[in-house]
Design a protein around this nucleic acid. Structure first.
Length: 283
DNA sequence: GTATGTACCTGTTTGC
DNA sequence: TGCAAACAGGTACATA
């Protein structure tokens, strides 16, 4: 599942391989990934044809390619959802099973949006080159130099919600998904159900550092599996190389204390934590 | 303004 | 063996 580090790897790949390319043709093979473009798939294709990619930018899990003018132009906004990939591919390579949108470029390569589950999507953002209005509500991510640590700490400590729920709230901090939330909480030795109001300032700072550190090391590893033709790894492979301390480790010994990692249901998904290192609010 | 629950998707795994 | 249910989970939107 692409979270911030994976999306950043994709952004760098696009920056390296499609910047300065002109879109010569667009083929939308499934309407769902362009559902946010209300005039429809045909209009989406028409509107992008002839445009030039001039910048690749990212906030949290969103990325966008500025078109024609990096300071004042439109943008193509991309979200990979659960299973999305952006691939730079030679045109003669057979279509991927879940190929949804294909861009023919004047460089002789193709940019392909492949997405099995189609939670992701593409949209044309008018005037969105610097920051698309569609994501104005998304908070800065913790790797952004303008991220305000103190404001984050204060925001967390005002909220009675569980800290994991707060971490997943993209209007508070962006780029954190289920995996990095669990990893950050494990490192900071905090239980995800603990209310923000119950946390001390140093605890929240420690958690923020933990989230940053786990993302930074994941990003470093994601970079190593980078392939020149594939702008993206397959969306999962980076994970398998990575050492996860909590996520997906049910029954395995905690790397700190040896207690078996536990899995519990949380918001229609799973949370993994060490029941000894990460004590719940009521236990 | 804030908080919570649910629909959207499809391939794989699990259980009867 | 075969089928159904469970599971993976980020986001927009509806609801409280």
């Amino acid at each position: 599942m692409p979270e911030l580090p994976e999306v950043e790897v994709v952004r760098r790949g696009l920056e390296a391989h499609v910047l300065d390319s002109v879109i010569e043709g667009v083929e939308v093979l499934h309407p769902r990934p362009v559902r946010r473009h209300l005039p429809g798939a045909a209009d989406f294709a028409r509107a992008l044809t002839g445009r030039r990619f001039v910048a690749a930018r990212r906030r949290g899990k969103y990325l966008w390619l500025a078109l024609d003018d990096a300071d004042a132009g439109d943008a193509m906004l991309v979200h990979l959802g659960m299973s999305g990939q952006m691939l730079v591919q030679r045109p003669e390579v057979a279509a991927e099973r879940h190929l949804r949108v294909r861009f023919g470029l004047d460089s002789g390569t193709e940019l392909r949006f492949v997405d099995q589950r189609m939670f992701g999507g593409l949209a044309l953002s008018p005037g969105g080159a610097v920051v698309p209005t569609e994501i104005a509500h998304i908070a800065l991510d913790p790797l952004d130099p303008d991220f305000d640590d103190e404001a984050f700490v204060a925001r967390v400590r005002r909220s009675a919600s569980g800290i994991k729920r707060i971490l997943l709230n993209q209007t508070v901090i962006s780029g954190v998904g289920n995996i990095y939330a669990d990893e950050g909480l494990w490192r900071a030795q905090l239980h995800g159900e603990k209310p923000g109001t119950a946390l001390t300032r140093p605890q929240v700072r420690l958690l923020l550092d933990a989230v940053r550190n786990v993302m930074t090391s994941a990003l470093a590893q994601g970079g190593t599996s980078f392939d020149a033709l594939y702008v993206n790894v397959n969306g999962e492979s980076g994970y398998f190389d990575r050492s996860l301390d909590a996520y997906g480790q049910e029954g395995r010994p905690c790397g700190r204390c040896g207690t078996a990692i536990r899995r519990v249901a949380f918001m229609n998904r799973s949370s993994y934590f060490c029941p000894r290192c990460q004590r719940g609010p009521r236990l």
